[in-house]
Design a protein around this nucleic acid. Structure first.
Lengths: 192, 192
DNA sequence: GTCTATAGTAGGATAGAC
DNA sequence: GTCTATCCTACTATAGAC
């Protein structure tokens, strides 16, 4: 593994654990087993390295999400596959946690990977829901974009609750709620 | 206003804006117009001052929340009043944002105010929903605790989306989704 | 490309005067 | 109670050798 790759991976891990402000170049260098020179040779500084790490994390999350949502089952089963993706509630979302960081949100270059990631996920979820409406699986009055927002917000907020309580069950309960809601979108469902 | 109070308020503002790790004692002192001595006289250090600020923020949020949920209208109208509380989506939640801070979550003393706040809100929301079930306003198969989790998670996640996109509309869309879901809990509602 | 040495600034806390 | 002066460490970046 090249030093550049080691630096990007170490930065990604630390951004996840400690956020942007809470991560120093020195920590990254130690974890990557690299010296100052390697980092400043490959990147202009902390910000550029962080963007590279964020893009890497975003790409990985996007691939995992597409695996779940791109299946050939029903819309509900694809949404449930997304909700059932393996996650670490206490660790939080690799991307979402960075949106709470002042230095990230106040810099468009640092914020861009997060904005793009969420735009993509919301669009993908809405697309699956729209498929379900089109095939008649879901009620005709389902609003795909609003429900997509609710789904991704519930996941992100579930992380917040789990971290506040230091209890993964808090995440699962919020996700259970959203699963129930999605189930009730099915045309002719018991709730309907 | 005493220096102690000025310090607590300044710390609360900065914790909201920049988080725990991103806020330094020097910033707090400057905003509070106080010297080092004042801070270290009234508090043992940054952590103790942060706890005081968090408790202050939690108390304020709790009062505002109780105003909305403690009304005498229907369960749905009380939940909607909570969802319609004036918020600043781009600024985020005063308490929720701190759960993304590594130094806060890894210290039980710093985490406690956040854990207690969310426990209270979740319990209060579940209580309102249970009231609705008891009076027959809401369907008998409504699960108050699960729906309470979904509601507060959607709000917290709504902040995440709004900050990622730097667009308050992203918050409102997630909240719209949860309003629609709550409306569908009403016994005999159109969706039902 | 990678390293160590160095530098300037800021973070967090203490000491002691008033 | 409040202030300023001081201390040690960490953060972020640069310089220059290899």
């Amino acid at each position: 593994m090249s030093k550049k790759e080691a630096l990007t991976r170490a930065a990604a891990d630390l951004l996840w654990e400690r956020g942007y402000t809470g991560t120093s170049p020195a920590m990254i260098l130690e974890r990557a087993q690299a010296g100052q020179g390697s980092m400043y040779h490959h990147f202009s500084g902390k910000a550029e390295l962080a963007v590279a790490a964020m893009v890497q994390m975003s790409d990985q999350l996007r691939a995992r999400t597409e695996d779940a949502l791109g299946g050939d089952g029903s819309a509900v089963s694809r949404i449930n596959a997304f909700l059932d993706l393996e996650r670490d509630p206490l660790a939080g979302c690799r991307i979402g946690r960075l949106t709470q960081d002042h230095d990230v949100v106040s810099d468009d270059v640092l914020r861009a990977p997060a904005a793009e990631f969420f735009s993509w996920v919301e669009g993908r979820l809405a697309g699956v829901l729209a498929d379900g409406v089109r095939t008649g699986e879901l009620r005709a009055d389902t609003r795909p974009d609003v429900m997509a927002s609710l789904i991704i917000a519930a996941v992100q907020g579930g992380y917040t609750l789990a971290r506040a309580h230091q209890d993964p069950a808090a995440f699962r309960q919020a996700v259970d709620g959203v699963k129930q809601v999605v189930g009730n979108l099915v045309a002719g469902s018991g709730r309907g």
